[in-house]
Amino acid sequence: MGSVRTNRYSIVSSEEDGMKLATMAVANGFGNGKSKVHTRQQCRSRFVKKDGHCNVQFINVGEKGQRYLADIFTTCVDIRWRWMLVIFCLAFVLSWLFFGCVFWLIALLHGDLDTDYKDDDDKSKVSKACVSEVNSFTAAFLFSIETQTTIGYGFRCVTDECPIAVFMVVFQSIVGCIIDAFIIGAVMAKMAKPKKRNETLVFSHNAVIAMRDGKLCLMWRVGNLRKSHLVEAHVRAQLLKSRITSEGEYIPLDQIDINVGFDSGIDRIFLVSPITIVHEIDEDSPLYDLSKQDIDNADFEIVVILEGMVEATAMTTQCRSSYLANEILWGHRYEPVLFEEKHYYKVDYSRFHKTYEVPNTPLCSARDLAEKKYILSNANSFCYENEVALTSKEEEEDSENGVPESTSTDSPPGIDLHNQASVPLEPRPLRRESEIGSRR
């Protein structure tokens, strides 16, 4: 089982795998120059863009038009607004034209077009017409509009002379109601789609790998820009990579689940303020055997998904993003964004995407760390350097704002901070800030 798991979770494809794949392509008759073999020097295209759209195009789909027309309502909801407006206008105009032609044909076959009612006051002739005051196609078209929109100006009306005319008036009224219901329903469904809710759900630009509770963890940050909550919010993550099976089958995008606390339930989050999602790199993680150097040379993509129900409509929305291997910062942490004021908490989104480097973060893999092949620094050293990194950030910001350097908390000259780390230190809580992250 261990060997199978290692093969499945191998992220960085070796040169031997690339040569094996190329040999397979030639042997199977696919070596026509169009096949692409992804190596370390040639990274694959992003499968999920940063804005959440999937970078996929469908080609050679059989009976595409028929399949889309069979699900016309979903098609109308998914198309762009400009095409929705075109369909909206065409549906009414074509129905008016169709029934206008029908009423014109009825008048033509009944002989109503030969009668001039402007110079004739004989009401008996008017009563013999199928539709009064309809003696041309324009008049028939206007009567069709008046019937379907129930305008009723009063000059044109159907008589009991022709039952077919009466039937067409009733039929057009029913068709008009159906068109109204369909168009209004599609427009309302399109307006109520929770897709735009994703514009106020954000992911951090970069993911980070750092120590948390004595273990290497992959972390990324999510935030909600609205005050309205995302009900039943939960997160998922998958690692996408290519691999070759033991039988020699090439899988271009193998999807591997990344555990973010599904078993323990901590994948469900209360997204009021930005939260750091934590994936513990343990023996079940696809990143277990990867060191910093392996991450730098790897070719994979981590897709992160945030799902929840919109509070206003109770409709489920899904926000997506992805991180390539070069977008994962090893040995970094996110800057705090949640600050405790006197009577409330304040979230500073200008710090949302910012990170700071944490010294002495192990550069080895989580496996080597678990097997004690890498000796961690003293816990006080880690905490102290973590505090120094934050303090230096604040000093830089104070210097930019014009604060005198004498007010900063610099260490005395001639003292090495790293050498001082081995000395037991008193706890130094942050002056006014605390970061709330997901705790395992």
Rank of each mutant, 00 (worst) to 15 (best):
P424N: 09
A165V: 03
M19H: 08
H418E: 14
F98T: 12
Y288T: 00
T115M: 10
A27H: 12
V77G: 14
V202Q: 11
I179M: 10
D17P: 06
I151E: 03
H229I: 05
L113I: 09
K292M: 12
N32P: 12
P424A: 11
Y334N: 01
V235E: 00
A139C: 00
H53R: 05
F30N: 15
K215I: 09
A70V: 03
E395L: 07
V12T: 15
L417H: 04
E280F: 09
M19C: 10
E283N: 10
G62P: 14
D368E: 05
K372R: 12
F141K: 00
I269F: 09
I375W: 06
W81G: 04
L363W: 07
Q293M: 12
L369Y: 07
I375K: 12
D122C: 00
Y374W: 08
E199L: 09
E15F: 04
F155W: 08
S399Y: 08
S10L: 05
Y250N: 15
W104I: 10
E63P: 12
E396I: 08
T361Y: 03
K292A: 13
V61I: 10
K193Q: 13
R44L: 06
G152T: 05
V61Q: 14
N297L: 09
A165T: 02
D284G: 09
L218S: 00
R367H: 11
L105W: 06
I145F: 04
E301M: 01
E341R: 05
E341W: 06
K346E: 04
M211Y: 09
V347M: 13
I151P: 06
T391D: 15
R226G: 13
N326T: 13
Q66N: 13
I72H: 13
I174Q: 03
E435Y: 04
D160S: 09
S291T: 10
D180F: 14
G2P: 04
S350Q: 12
H353W: 03
F171A: 04
L97E: 02
T150H: 11
E335S: 11
E396P: 12
N28C: 04
K196R: 08
I244N: 15
S173G: 06
S13T: 09
L417M: 06
Y345V: 13
M84I: 07
F99S: 02
K346W: 04
K64T: 11
L113Y: 03
V347Y: 09
L230V: 10
W81S: 02
C383I: 14
D112S: 02
R156G: 00
D116L: 15
F262K: 05
N32H: 08
L240F: 07
L425T: 14
S35M: 09
R333M: 15
E146I: 02
I209M: 07
Y250Q: 15
D51Y: 03
K64N: 08
C54M: 10
L338Q: 08
K292L: 02
I281Q: 02
V403T: 07
K372E: 14
F167V: 13
L306F: 11
A237G: 07
H110R: 01
L69G: 11
S204N: 02
K227N: 04
K346G: 09
D121T: 10
F382Q: 09
S127G: 04
S35A: 12
D289L: 06
C101Q: 02
N380L: 03
F339L: 15
H343P: 07
V303P: 00
T150S: 12
R432C: 13
A181Y: 15
I179C: 10
S321K: 12
E397N: 10
F98S: 04
L69N: 09
H110G: 02
C157N: 10
A370P: 03
T391K: 05
L105E: 01
W220S: 13
A325N: 10
E400R: 08
V187Q: 05
N326W: 03
F143T: 04
D284Y: 12
Y288N: 00
R268E: 13
I415D: 15
V403I: 13
K193T: 08
F73W: 10
L287R: 02
M211H: 14
L253R: 09
E405C: 06
V26H: 14
P424L: 03
Q57R: 13
L90Q: 12
A389Y: 12
L90R: 01
V303C: 08
D122Y: 02
A237T: 00
N378L: 04
L369T: 02
D257H: 06
N206P: 04
L338K: 02
K50V: 02
A25H: 14
D299M: 07
G2L: 03
F171S: 03
E307S: 12
I295G: 00
L142F: 02
P427T: 12
D120Y: 00
T361W: 01
A314F: 09
L306R: 01
V358P: 01
T138S: 09
L253F: 04
A25L: 05
E199M: 10
R351C: 15
V102K: 00
F137W: 14
W220L: 04
P359E: 15
D289G: 04
I277C: 10
V222Y: 02
S408D: 14
A107P: 01
S14Y: 06
Y384C: 12
S228I: 13
G248F: 03
S124T: 12
A314V: 09
R333I: 15
F382P: 05
V202G: 06
Y9T: 15
E357C: 06
V170W: 04
G154K: 01
I183H: 08
D257Y: 07
D122Q: 01
T138P: 07
I277P: 01
V166W: 02
V208N: 00
H205L: 03
V303S: 04
A129N: 07
G214F: 07
C130T: 00
C162I: 01
C364M: 08
D263F: 04
T313P: 11
V278D: 00
F171W: 12
D410A: 07
V61H: 11
M188W: 03
F262Y: 09
L94D: 01
K125H: 15
P359T: 12
S399G: 09
